[in-house]
């Protein structure tokens, strides 16, 4: 155990934990930020995706010690600001079915749009293929991302 400081959604939290603990479980169990989901625990599904200094990471494979010093953003933080274009697009395209994969999908999409203002369909597909959706919402995720990108360019 050791005392660690984490900066999550603009707030600084101190916790006393084994520094090897995956960030996912700290977010979920210690900070009650349950948008990030457990889907596989081995970096294969993307359900646990959060941003660290703007980069999408698999929080199930990221130890808290690696997260110290970084700005961590979860879905709760991303959508804390009203009217995020990704939120509008996700609702507008009615993307969610069971919804369980969606927080990870949205965070991964947020990273993509932070990098590429005008992504092509193949950019979207390449960027999003690390995130599994067993309900098959893929066509709508694709549409929602293109829609959000367009809206962001015109803002």
């Amino acid at each position: 155990m050791s005392l660690l400081e984490l900066r999550v959604n603009g707030r600084v939290h101190s916790i006393d934990r084994d520094p090897d603990t995956p960030l996912l479980w700290i977010l979920r169990d210690q900070f009650n930020l349950t948008a990030a989901k457990y889907g596989c625990g081995i970096g294969e599904c993307g359900a646990c995706t959060v941003l660290m200094d703007g980069v999408a990471v698999r929080s199930c494979m990221t130890s808290v010690s690696e997260a110290v010093g970084a700005k961590i953003l979860t879905l709760e933080g991303l959508f804390a600001v009203e009217g995020h274009p990704l939120r509008r697009a996700w609702l507008g395209e009615e993307v969610s079915q069971c919804g369980f994969c969606q927080p990870g999908q949205i965070m991964n999409a947020a990273e993509l749009l932070g990098r590429v203002a005008d992504p092509s369909t193949s950019d979207v597909r390449a960027a999003m293929s690390g995130n599994i959706c067993r309900c098959g919402s893929y066509p709508r995720i694709e549409k929602a991302i293109l829609r959000a990108a367009k809206e962001m360019r015109h803002e």
Partner: peptide, 16 residues
Amino acid sequence: IPRVDSPDKVDGKTIY
């Protein structure tokens, strides 16, 4: 009609 379960799911607020 917009699905009633969508907003919470998109916001990550749904408690599974």
